[in-house]
Design a protein around this nucleic acid. Structure first.
Lengths: 233, 233
DNA sequence: TAGTGGTCTAGACCACAAG
DNA sequence: TTGTGGTCTAGACCACTAC
């Protein structure tokens, strides 16, 4: 190994990873202390710390004060799912994106939306329905509910061509969210929108969003038959 | 703000986050340089760097050398999906877990598995089918293919009660994987295993796993009707 | 109580990219 | 060319926890 350059935290991280994969340090094994590794690699302890911290974030190792660093026995792998806009999903496939607003109404939120968004009973919400297309083919149907109290401007916004997801992302950029994935059967309306047979199995994503503890929106996206959401990790 | 203790990188991170949410720094805005923030907060630049690095990892800000740090315009939110073992999924619901092996055979991999796992044509693989139960209720059906060349012991292992997923995780702990989610209709066999009507919409997860560039296994998990996979971010 | 990781500092040099 | 983030260092103190 060329000692010309300084050892980077990535060098340390990768070498530690290599040893774990090669079973130099098998599952559950105790690794040397940061100080020992720093001496071995000829770098500062902070460098080793940064390297091991990244591996701990990935779930590859477990760290505890006093007891030391161990190779994780059941590596908790995490898939990072990027939740992008529909436009991005479509354009990543080199397809042309188009959105069409289907319906729009102000109404008192129904019970299941009250419950889903954790709203007060009787809250007025904006209900939108729309279709997302990729190269003119149905991509997914969107059923969205917006708490206008949280985003007053949303009642006046024009969603005819800018999908509500993008509009909200621009208006309320940072928030925490809850997402869930499942499957549903196409009812008559979905079958028509998605150009599929009634009863077809459809992939569905639901997302509830909050901004500073206040419920903002709930969206249910139902995708065309055969759609799969992918990720690497 | 109490100046008694040293400023931690978390203090800096949270305060920067607060200002972004409060629109002190709106979307696309240029933040002060690390040096300026360090001076304002009365801490070292390394501390500011760590704080901003975490926000950049989350996708909240974009950082570029020379041009500086900006509030992300389209926050690329990432959902961290923990891909745990089936046992963990079930036990998190305070249910009793049970696995049952349904079938087991050695065979030449069919074309779609060859393609899915990127195997050489004619490769011998171990094909397993099994059911996972939660409190005796069908949880999901597993259709798994194992490249025995990558994990020779796997051909001899006993999967009668230890699900192949857990066995492999112990034998080949660290690898990279590709995962996808979708929906499928219950065929006759799935309907029977999952105790549901034929044609029911089912949530499906597929995962291909490699260990050091060598394909290890492909698994298709088909869940009971109504199952949803959840995550926060 | 002592060992180990967690963090902060002050300074330094490097790497990338806008002008 | 120069400003900005990216990283490393050497040292220090702190916080948690097994003993």
């Amino acid at each position: 190994m060329p000692q010309q350059k300084k050892i980077s935290f990535q060098d340390v991280r990768d070498e530690v990873m290599r040893r774990i994969e090669a079973r130099v340090w098998p599952q559950g094994a105790l690794l040397p202390t940061e100080a020992e590794l720093a001496e071995e690699f000829g770098c500062a302890r902070a460098t080793v710390n940064r390297a091991l911290r990244e591996l701990a974030d990935r779930g590859v190792i477990d760290r505890k004060r006093k007891s030391g660093t161990r190779v994780a026995t059941l590596p908790v792998k995490q898939a990072k799912l990027e939740i992008a806009t529909s436009r991005k999903l479509v354009e990543e496939r080199n397809a042309t994106y188009r959105f069409a607003l289907v319906s729009r109404e102000m109404r008192v939120a129904p019970g299941w939306v009250i419950s889903q968004m954790q709203l007060a009973a009787g809250t007025e919400v904006l209900h939108l329905e729309g279709m997302h297309y990729a190269d003119g083919q149905p991509f997914h149907f969107e059923d969205r509910w917006i708490n206008i109290a949280a985003v007053p401007d949303s009642a006046e916004a024009d969603y005819a061509e800018t999908p509500p997801g993008e509009w909200l992302l621009a208006a309320v950029p940072f928030s925490n969210a809850e997402v869930s994935f499942g499957a549903t059967s196409a009812d008559a309306a979905l079958a028509e929108y998605l150009a599929c047979a009634p009863g077809a199995a459809l992939f569905q994503m639901e997302r509830s969003t909050w901004f500073q503890e206040e419920p903002v929106t709930f969206a249910r996206m139902t995708f065309h038959p055969g759609y799969r959401m992918r990720s690497r990790y």
